[in-house]
Design a protein around this nucleic acid. Structure first.
Lengths: 210, 210
DNA sequence: CTAGACATCAAACAATTGTTTGGTTTATAG
DNA sequence: CTATAAACCAAACAATTGTTTGATGTCTAG
């Protein structure tokens, strides 16, 4: 069921993809009209509605400059090049190029829960035991009360030390365990540890063999 | 030279920090006024100008809803305690928020060499031995002739199979080795293997213990 | 005490912008 | 040929929004 997308709509979709990052503001309807060579803002309005009901994009209420491509929208524009067909179902799935820079950032840095996310870069090899090495990036979601078993960023000793460990709760105590498990755990009363957030992604170069 | 920031301005700055992410739109001046308990939009306008000339934020021209915290702005509100200063030199380095969605994507998806990069999502657990699991994302840089020891995406059997392995060259043959090394290597004449590219990043949730 | 800077307010203005209305053109199904 | 739907246009409307104007209270330096 490959829906045939009107060329003008595809053009609009691509434009929005390019201009809907966190960087600039999304274009207004009139700006879109100009960019895709349509003389009436209404025509864009018309296409935008079509695109929205077809599930290619969403808008916040009907507020200015708030189009956002849906997954379907991203798929429609990315043509799925190179490895797409070849890899499908064989252990790898292509996730497109170019425009995807935006959606990658969106996927990594925006949470459905509305909680903020931020990045931490690992300095030094103090967490090598947890398979987290110098230079790796951690995507952390703010969460002061993450579920048991989550990998958390915790402040110890009045904030003098920061660690990344897996969290367990026991009888009013917090147990912080290095991810690979074979070190002695750190156990402390809950009031001595401030949980900053939860690690949701680890980004690193391909691992050297161990 | 720690500049003393007016409490109202600090409040505004914090509000903007929270609402200037990838998620919603930044608040309008009147929305800010309401949120920080000021009755006149002009007062916010006034503070915003102060903040801008002082270098805490920038606005796109003077367009609606386009405040962006500068580095100085982020510093001012985080007191930079939390993860910033504390973490410095202690295992973690804060890498800002918000704006960074952009630069994150840029860092991951643009190569200095000018070669294209794309994403692959791993389907299934066929590469579990290489510490690459179902759902992980691979950032791949196009490179038909990567250096020895690189982790590459290779097509085997006329493109019928795709694998991710570490590449070695030996006497006109290619040796593809699973990253963890303890499986038998795949050795094939160079003409039977098409190297698609080189894995530059692996993105995955924090690893469960093994 | 007084002048001036600062913070605040209310009201009005003008630009931007999504939307509505009503119409035209064009291709196609009946 | 005709009716219909899709694509498009121009113009006007109303809401949102940054900005301007003019004024008031408060604190502090001189």
């Amino acid at each position: 069921m490959v829906e045939q997308l009107h060329p003008k709509r595809l053009e609009i979709l691509k434009l929005l993809a390019r201009r809907t990052g966190t960087a600039g503001r999304a274009p207004s309807i009139r700006e879109v009209a100009e960019a895709v060579d349509l003389r009436s803002s209404q025509t864009v309005h018309y296409h935008l509605n079509k695109l929205e009901v077809a599930g290619y994009l969403e808008r916040l209420n009907d507020k200015p400059r708030t189009p956002r491509l849906t997954a379907k929208g991203w798929e429609a524009i990315s043509g799925f090049p190179l490895l797409g067909r070849i890899a499908a179902g064989r252990g790898l799935e292509a996730v497109a190029v170019g425009d995807e820079a935006y959606s990658l950032a969106a996927e990594l840095l925006s949470s459905r829960s509305g909680r903020g996310r931020y990045l931490l870069r690992v300095v030094g090899q103090s967490m090598i035991g947890a398979h987290i090495d110098d230079g790796d990036l951690l995507v952390v979601e703010e969460d002061e009360d993450p579920p048991d078993g989550a990998v958390v960023v915790a402040l110890l000793r009045n904030g003098e030390e920061v660690t990344v460990k897996r969290l367990y709760r026991e009888y009013g105590l917090l147990r912080l365990r290095l991810e690979n498990g074979d070190h002695e755990d750190l156990v402390a009363p809950a009031e001595d540890v401030v949980i900053q957030g939860r690690v949701v992604y680890v980004i690193h170069p391909p691992r050297r063999r161990r």
